[in-house]
Simulated scan of single mutants.
Amino acid sequence: MSDRDKKPRFHRAPGKGRDAGRRPAWREREARVDGPVILYGWHTVAAALGNPQRKIRKLLLTENAARRLADENIDTRVTPEIVRPNLIDQRLGPDAVHQGLLAEADPLQSPDIDTLPLEGIVLVLDQITDPHNVGAILRSAAAFAVKAIVTTARHSPEATGVLAKSASGALEMVPLVTVQNLARALSELNDIGFMTVGLDSEGAKDLGAVELRQPLALVLGAEGKGLRQLTRETCSVVARLDMPGEIKSLNVSNAAVLALYIGASRLGLMG
């Protein structure tokens, strides 16, 4: 285990924010899955095996997958079951691209809002329900070193299966903060010093024209519905993403990438 792996997921510097110096409070993410989390695919399972905070219960591997893990010196951490590919197909369905790996694991823990570092960017998702979109957002979040993603316990996909596969390992890199009430969570982010910027087509300014500061929370709404009214009202700023072409709207995962690029560039986080 590296020194990095031994450090806590979040650390607040003394004297910063509310409850400064308090030991980070952890709680188990609300279980919305009957039984363990299902992880499949090379990047997803390899990242889980490399994450000391992820408890692996069971590991199914084809002979080829087991050989590849051994060749790349990836510790399986549990004794794997070597199976034929069709057995994993039966577990997941014929459309799942599992690449010969399937893991059953415990859910990761969810940090509290007040343990988030007061720097960089977090993303807040307002009832984005498509697991492919949330997985793609997670992958982009990992690429931009996002500190966490805040999402609701209800009206959001489970952190398992398709979402985990779409995230391509990012589920192990970007913590998910699960909250009961998004408006209350945004209020708490405001209280501890975050600039909360909602992204909405009706925003008063283009995001590129907004004077941004750290810590920054970018708030994304579901496609079609956008931000809910109370979410919009709780954000400190509501901004839009202007497009020069004839199509003026983006898929929410693409909008997340653009917003992250603008935010990271404006905050000097790109290099």
Rank of each mutant, 00 (worst) to 15 (best):
A25F: 12
G120M: 07
D5K: 02
V78Q: 05
G35D: 12
V197E: 04
K205D: 06
A46V: 15
T196H: 08
N190T: 10
G50R: 10
D130A: 09
A239V: 08
A103F: 14
I88A: 07
L258K: 00
I74A: 07
G198L: 13
H11D: 05
L163A: 07
I38F: 10
A25Q: 10
I82S: 01
H98Q: 11
T160P: 08
I128S: 05
M243F: 09
P131T: 08
A47Q: 10
L176P: 03
M195P: 07
L230R: 13
Y40K: 08
A65F: 10
D206V: 08
T129E: 13
E28I: 03
D130M: 07
R12W: 00
E72N: 11
L218M: 00
S265F: 05
G271F: 12
P80F: 01
V252M: 11
S187Q: 08
R68N: 14
G41I: 09
A209S: 14
V83R: 05
A136K: 05
V45S: 12
G17N: 02
C235Q: 03
K7S: 09
L163S: 02
E233I: 10
L138V: 09
L59F: 07
L49V: 08
N251Y: 02
P175M: 00
A48G: 15
R91S: 07
E246G: 13
A13R: 14
T79K: 13
W42G: 06
E211R: 03
G271M: 12
T79I: 11
E188Q: 11
K248R: 14
P52D: 10
E63G: 01
T196V: 12
L216P: 01
D89P: 04
E158A: 15
I137T: 02
S110F: 05
N86S: 05
D191W: 13
K55R: 13
G100I: 03
T115R: 03
A185C: 07
A143W: 03
R22I: 06
P175T: 10
E81C: 08
Q180M: 13
Q53R: 15
L87I: 09
R213F: 04
L269G: 02
D114V: 08
S265R: 14
R68V: 12
C235N: 04
G21M: 10
P111S: 00
R240A: 11
P94T: 11
A185S: 10
T151S: 00
R84E: 12
G120S: 03
R84W: 02
I82F: 02
A255M: 06
L138Y: 07
G15E: 08
R12G: 05
D5Q: 11
R27P: 07
K7R: 04
G198D: 08
N73V: 07
R77V: 00
S140L: 05
V33G: 02
Q99K: 13
I113Y: 05
S110D: 06
I38H: 00
R184I: 15
G268D: 09
A209W: 12
V197T: 06
A25I: 15
M1W: 03
P157I: 07
A256F: 06
E30F: 09
D34Q: 13
T178F: 12
S2G: 08
D89A: 11
L123D: 00
R12S: 01
V124L: 08
P8R: 09
L123S: 11
D5P: 01
L176D: 00
R68T: 15
L69C: 11
P157E: 00
V219D: 01
Q214C: 01
C235T: 00
S168M: 15
D89G: 12
K7P: 01
R139G: 02
A25V: 15
V134N: 06
